[in-house]
Design a protein around this nucleic acid. Structure first.
Lengths: 250, 250
DNA sequence: CGCCGGTTTGAAGAATTTCAAAGGGAGTGG
DNA sequence: CCACTCCCTTTGAAATTCTTCAAACCGGCG
């Protein structure tokens, strides 16, 4: 399942350059990282709580989630990760994993040795700043999720996470005609937004009946973006995507 | 309300050195930062959503909270900050504030110009790594709070946040005889943990009656740490405080 | 064809919120 | 020094949201 490929970091490069363009030199340094490609089947845990990873991984295709299992066995999903994300960049500085990373769909990921990352950051402080920024955006998303889970009623929560995924997929060029991949199970949405499977189901039904969204064959169509985003109280600030890139499509 | 003082960053220095000791040179560079001290009255907003700050602030005394107001006016508190924390370090890279920072008690804070921080980080990559790490710990705390809010019942949530504050206060030498400052209002706890004021009140009553804690004159006493931490399912990993420093006191 | 994971529905039950109102306690002004 | 005020805490009761339990359904895959 391991192989090497030269431009496997393309999604990451695109994302990193989205804020300020990457210099040729920076791009070269990133592309030169010695990565190992790995294909992960759906449902597989990529990193487990308690691990001391020596790699971080960049998402190439698929969908992953960071999660914690709490006493009683309930799962809390803290984030979803799509191509271009580095879900476990923090493991570079926080040696011990306090959460897991799991593949919600079949994924292909690029493993980057911490040692190489260390060197890269030392040699290119500007890249260090970019990556630091990425971890901060991550953090900003956590904060918005807390608002969702802590203070918004279920229908708003689900609408909100749909809006978020829509904008994020759009940002990496994976939204077309108001359609995005939607491989989420009701259980994964519930674990992310603090709801039971049953309730997620009922709420999705509402959203469908209100003709805000349609879901078929693991694809979600936004039927009425303005109404959906209003309903969800969705304000994309917190994703810290450059304005220009957002307003273009939506 | 502004004045200058030489060693106002002492709490921050102590915290930063807690992971790996600071070199003399690093400590000197930090202490040389041109900070402005400011006293903030309780209830005052230090930074508002939408601001583009040119400083970050280090907590010297008092208690602050990061928060968002959502449509409908509800407040979600995302984090509490005690002396030694830099609640808004992220504003160095995320230009626009997507949340606010408010003083829950009278506070004194040290404003550090972003320009000086930039220079510091460029001159001392090792300090950059330490500060990056701090923001990642912040992130880890967000993740644990998500577990709390999303998946734990109210009594566990409140017990958990109490455990967290206890360990954090202990870590900066502000816990004595199992007592910590407890200036939280029920409203602030509720806004942090996704509960109503009324319910926080009832839950605190339970915890008192179970003789897990006692609260008087804004001081909380942990009456039975082992039982409290078990009840809360509290595992301090996520605070990423060096083992040695934790087990010593608790 | 049959299995399996995921979805859907109904009904009952629990946790939590909302509404309403009374009870402290600390600071302020007279 | 007292009275007043404001904010916070506390309590009760009713309403609501969401969960749990149970069971049927559905669609893709071996």
């Amino acid at each position: 399942m391991n192989r090497l490929a030269p431009d496997s970091l393309a999604p990451l490069l695109r994302k990193l350059s989205s804020h300020h363009g990457l210099s040729a030199e920076e791009a070269r340094a990133l592309a030169a990282l010695p990565v190992t490609l790995r294909d992960v089947p759906a449902g597989h845990d990529i990193i487990r709580q308690g691990d001391h990873p020596v790699h971080s991984c960049a998402m190439i295709t698929g969908l992953t989630a960071r999660f914690k299992i709490i006493r009683g066995g309930e799962r809390q999903i803290n984030s979803f990760h799509i191509p271009g994300d580095i879900p476990d960049l923090q493991s570079l500085f926080l040696e011990r994993m306090d959460h897991g990373l799991t593949a919600l769909t079949a994924c292909s990921i690029a493993l980057i040795p911490h040692r190489s990352l260390d060197r890269l950051l030392a040699d290119f402080p500007s890249l260090a700043r970019r990556l630091w920024r990425e971890t901060l955006v991550d953090s900003a998303v956590f904060q918005e999720w807390m608002c969702n889970i802590g203070r918004r009623p279920a229908p708003m929560r689900i609408a909100h996470i749909i809006c978020e995924m829509f904008v994020r997929y759009d940002n990496i060029g994976m939204a077309h005609d108001l359609r995005i991949p939607f491989p989420f199970t009701h259980a994964s949405l519930g674990d992310a937004q603090g709801l039971s499977v049953v309730h997620v189901n009922r709420v999705l039904k509402q959203l469908r009946q209100a003709e805000l969204i349609a879901i078929e064959s693991r694809t979600l169509t936004v039927l009425d973006w303005p109404r959906l985003r209003t309903f969800a109280d969705f304000i994309p600030d917190y994703l810290h995507i450059p304005q220009a890139k957002i307003t273009a499509t939506i």
